[in-house]
Write a protein that binds this DNA or RNA. Structure first.
Lengths: 340, 340
DNA sequence: AGCGCAAGTTAAAACGCTTGACCCTCGGGG
DNA sequence: CCCCGAGGGTCAAGCGTTTTAACTTGCGCT
């Protein structure tokens, strides 16, 4: 039952503890012959160093924390799921462990996010789904510990981030709808993230440049969920029957909106065009399949890990990167309906 | 920069290290006055014990590992996501940390799953998405370490598990379709899990008891994904045009199947009824909304944590539990089409 | 006065590893 | 022939806790 420790290996090989440890850490001071002897004994016993002892002694854990927002069933959200997948797969391939944390009140009030770093329990933080109200992020920015905001940012503050290009997204979406002749457009989104706010501003701007009157742009605030999209679409359609297109802040909202439109007995895209954002797997299999702006969330996750490594290695003080996006045209958008 | 340790607290309070440690672990041997003194100092310094040191010394980590299968983008799968959410939220509310592991080749070949337990890096394992081919599970069953199979089982082997009731699910689904007059039914599922196999057997049995000829039951094997459902539906419809209903092994397959049916120019449920399983959020927002067998995945996750605790406390040798299911009727199923 | 005992506290040995300082041995240069 | 330095190893002091056995008191008995 007693686990084999570094001591057992040392005894078997007739060397000291230190030697074994040095071999395990690829220290070049050990001769090739000793190294081989130790390694073969390690293999023979399937020896695995004790992580706790290692971390305690070395004051570093070779692991990182993913901070997800405090939402119910948050791991069931494909948006976060895609990003976490990208993070997890990339980080583990680089030998980093991934820990999960949820940014609930306790986590924030006890400064757990700083404690994780101070106690060296993790080497860095990857923060998902932060909102404009997350004041605690200021402490992080000031702290000099490695962290990256994932698919979010704060204009004007110098914080590390990796994000999709929401500004180009806005232009692509707007132009696509304009090209189809839409001049009465609803927007369905939240106001809790800077990305959504940036998106709205640039979408509005692009629409107006394309000849849409400001009063023909309709806005509905809501949760980034199917339910939020459903209710938002209802609200907009009740008020603005002249509306011919809906731009949703993400694919889930778009799918919720389409559901409501179907319920109402209207057809997408014949009566109303719908465009989403992200291009999660569900977009392709929606009925009708969803036109959307593709954000490579998996890639965003992977790049965030990369950014963290840059910070670990002190190759940069600040990492800010915007990733390209792409319009994916499917069935849910089409020419504006003939005036009825 | 130097973190405050137990030593600092001890010095400040004029007591020994042991006393502080005992206070922190709620040992009743310490007097109320000393306890208060220590605790107030702890609060003052926002002292947090070092997890590594604690785990190393106590040989227990108050944490558990979730093992997910080695699939691409696995965290973006709402099936796993729901379960992980249930696990995470329940475990953290009980003071347990949750670690993520992926059952890839390295993980299995190096016996990492056993090492995690041997080195006490985690106290128990929660295994998701295991398949009939996962031979390594035998080692676990033999090992006497705490683990629970989540929503899977091996008939005949005495392994711990928590699972939805796939047998009742099968009867509910079959009877629902039979009630609507369906007598030519396709099944879309995988063959890699015992739950799916059990489901198939009992679905078949129920259908035959309901008067469906065996040769009018069609089977298509495939991945548990939208794409798998899409292709499976195509395969079935190409071969069996007389088919009027499709039972899918999960909601994602059902949604993929509906997508294919729409592509083919057919209507759900007018031409083909479709029923899914799980009742993930997407089921309600599909077009048409999906009739399905509800498995409370979140609850399954939470119960699995509960089961692990029972094993920790040695209150039972073996934990096997089957959770109730429910038919949720929505729009995707209806009476059989009139013969054409 | 002496004893036993309970309650409260502490000393010290782990836990398994890392790491900087130190030590030995040899070969070569002065 | 001695000294020096490089290469290869080892020593031992941590890292920050837990935990067991042992040590004080003070008190009530006899």
């Amino acid at each position: 039952m007693a686990r084999t420790t570094i001591k057992d290996i040392a005894r078997e090989c007739g060397v000291s503890l230190s030697t074994v440890s040095l071999v395990l850490n690829n220290n070049p001071r050990i001769s090739e012959s000793t190294r081989e002897k130790v390694l073969s004994s390690v293999r023979k016993h399937e020896y695995q160093p004790n992580t706790f002892a290692r971390s305690l002694a070395s004051q570093s854990s070779r692991s990182l924390s993913v901070i997800v927002p405090h939402l119910n069933h948050v791991f069931a959200d494909t948006y976060f799921g895609e990003i976490v997948s990208g993070i997890y797969e990339h980080a583990t391939s680089l030998g980093y462990k991934v820990m999960l944390e949820m940014a609930n009140r306790h986590f924030i009030q006890t400064h757990e996010y700083l404690n994780l770093l101070k106690t060296k329990r993790v080497d860095g933080l990857l923060i998902l789904g932060s909102s404009v109200h997350d004041e605690y992020l200021k402490d992080l920015a000031a702290s000099n510990y490695p962290y990256v905001l994932v698919n979010h940012y704060f204009p004007g503050r110098s914080m590390n981030y990796i994000s999709a290009d929401y500004i180009t997204s806005a232009r692509l979406a707007a132009n696509h709808l304009l090209d189809h002749g839409h001049r009465h457009i609803g927007m369905l989104s939240g106001t809790t993230t800077n990305t959504a706010l940036d998106f709205r501003d640039h979408f509005t701007k692009a629409c107006m440049e394309g000849g849409v009157a400001k009063e023909n742009l309709y806005w509905s605030d809501g949760w980034f969920t199917e339910q939020g999209g459903f209710e938002g679409a209802q609200w907009l359609l009740d008020r603005y029957p002249e509306m011919t297109a809906i731009m949703a802040g993400n694919d889930k909202m778009a799918i919720g909106a389409m559901r409501h439109i179907a319920r109402r007995g209207l057809k997408v895209p014949h009566d109303i065009s719908v465009i989403g954002m992200d291009d999660v797997a569900a977009a392709e299999f929606a009925n009708p399949s969803l036109t959307t702006i593709r954000h490579d969330l998996y890639q965003i996750g992977a790049k965030s890990v990369e950014a963290l490594l840059v910070l670990f290695r002190k190759e940069a003080e600040l990492v800010q990167q915007t990733l390209p996006v792409e319009l994916v045209v499917r069935e849910s958008t089409g020419p504006v309906r003939t005036a009825s």
